[in-house]
């Protein structure tokens, strides 16, 4: 192998290593766990992990919204074990797509 292509190869390797590091760091810094309501209820320490996205359905009739303070409160139930629920407080504008049973 010629000297120049060796140099090019090293430069490429460095770039790839950099990309690898970036991706790993990206995952560990910004990754968010995807949990169900019942998982969180069983082990509430899961909520203290860096970020959690919880999947569940909004229980009908539990939605209250304070437009002055932009505070939305509702109850989420587990998709499979429907008797398991948790209360959610959301600060901000109610999203268009937000509704019961979705």
């Amino acid at each position: 192998m010629k000297k120049s292509s060796k140099k090019t190869g090293i430069a490429l390797l460095l770039i790839l290593a950099g990309v690898g590091v970036l991706i790993l760091k990206g995952v560990s810094d910004t990754g968010v766990y995807y949990r169900t309501v019942s998982e969180v209820l069983i082990d509430s320490s899961l909520l203290e992990e860096r970020g959690v996205r919880i999947s569940g359905e909004v229980e009908g009739g539990t939605i209250t919204y304070d437009q002055q303070e932009l505070k939305l409160i509702f109850v989420v139930r587990d998709l499979e074990e429907v008797e398991k629920t948790m209360k959610v407080v959301y600060i901000g504008i109610k999203p268009d797509a937000f509704d019961a049973d979705v």
């Binding site: 910004t30 968010v32 995807y34």
Partner: peptide, 14 residues
Amino acid sequence: GNKLTVGEPFFNMV
């Protein structure tokens, strides 16, 4: 076995 997702921050950061 855990579903871990990445969103906008990941893509912007990388």
